[in-house]
Design a protein around this nucleic acid. Sequence first.
RNA 1: UGGGGUAUCGCCAAGCGGUAAGGCACGGGACUUUGACUCCCGCAUUCGUAGGUUCAAAUCCUGCUACCCCAG
Length: 368
Amino acid sequence: MERIVVGMSGGVDSSVAALLLKRQGYDVVGVFMKNWDEQDENGACTATQDWGDVQAVCDHIGIPYYAVNFEKEYQERVFSYFLEEYRKGRTPNPDVLCNREIKFKAFLDFALQLGAGKMATGHFVKTGALHGHTTLLKGADPNKDQSYFLYMLKEEQLQKAVFPVGDMTKAQVRALAFEAGLPVSQKKDSTGVCFIGERNFRQFLQGFLPLQAGEMQTEDGRVMGRHIGLSYYTLGQRKGLGIGGGGDGRSWFVVDKDLKRNVLVVAQGEDHPRLYSRYVRASQATWVGEPPGAEGAPFRCAATFRYRQADQPVEAVWRGQDLYLRAEQPQRAVTPGQSVVLYDGDRCLGGGIAEEAGMRPLADLVTK
RNA sequence: UGGGGUAUCGCCAAGCGGUAAGGCACGGGACUUUGACUCCCGCAUUCGUAGGUUCAAAUCCUGCUACCCCAG
C-alpha cells in the first residue's frame, strides 16, 4: 500500500484531502507543520488550536499523525527574505517562497523520509501531463485556484505531489467534510501569511522593521501628511493614509515610493494614471517545466499580477532570469516584489517577481 | 485694534426660519493562504461662544472670541 504524507493545517481543505486519500486506499499519514512560534494579538497561539484540529481530524479519519517543526528553515529561507524585501521598500509575497522552500522542499523531504512515495496538500490546483511532462494546472474552482502561489514549483516537485481537492469546488469540499462529520467542516478559512496567520500587518512589521517617518507628497510636491515608514505601505494602497478632504474630494492612493527622499507619493482617484502600467519587467523568472518558447522570442499568454486576478492577455519574452511583459490592458498597481504568474489556458507556465512597471515601454521591453 | 469677510464631524462641504446632505478620513464586517484593491454597515440631538427674537433658528438680531483679506 503506497504511503502518502498529507500536509495538514487543521483547515477544511487539507482535512478533506486526507480523507479522500484514505478512502482511495492509501496509507495516509497526517503531518502538521509548525513553522512559526508566536502568539497572535490576543495572546493565543493559533498553531496550538490548529494542531488540536489536526489531531481530531486524523483520529476521526483513522490515520496516524505527526508534527514537524521547520521554524528554522522558514526563518532562513522565507522570513529573512520577506523582511529584506520590506526593508528595501518592496512588497514581497512570502507564500510563494514558502511553497517552494518549505512545503514542497523541506516538508517533501521529510515525507520521503517517512517512507512515502508522495506528499499531498489541500491546495486548489491540479497536475496534468503534457508530452510526458508533469504540469501545474489551475484548480477546478475558479474562485479558489491557488496556482498563483505555486508557480515557483518545478516539475520534479510536482511529480511527488498530489492535490486531492484540486478538481473540486470549495462548496464540494465543505459538503464532503460535513457529510463525513469532520470536526472542522465549519471552520472558517484561514488567511494571512502562511504559518503566521491573520494579524494587524502594520503592528506585526513594527516588531521587525524600524519606523522611519517622512512626508506624504503629491506628484508636484504638495505635502499631504506624514507616513510612518515607506516599508509600511504598498502601491495602490488606500487605507491607512489618513488623508481626507482636499483636492477633488476623492480617495487618496499610494502611487510611488521615493526611497531616496523617504517620501510617499500619493495621488487622488482610484483611476489615477500613475496607478496603471502596461509594461512590466520581472526578475527571477522560473518555469515549471520547459521555458515557453526560445529565449528572446516573444510569445502570447495570459498573466496574473496578483492572486485571484482574472487572466490578463500579455505578450511576453524572457531572457535569462529576466521576464518582460506587455499587457493588452493597463494593469493597476503592479508592485515590485509581487509575483507575476504566466498561464497558457489552465496551465501555469511559471512566472517572476515584478521589478518595475510603467505605461511607457521600459528599456529592453518587448519590442514589437 | 479703521473697513470687509468667514466661523457646520478629524478634513472638504451642503444648508438661506421648520427641526443637520454628501464626499474623504476613521471604525466594524464581508471577500482573501502575500501585501493591497473592492464591497457592505457605522460615524455631528448638534452647527465658534454667550444671549435675544420666534410656536420653531445652523439659518434672523446683539455681544464676545478666532481666523482671513484690505487698509495701516
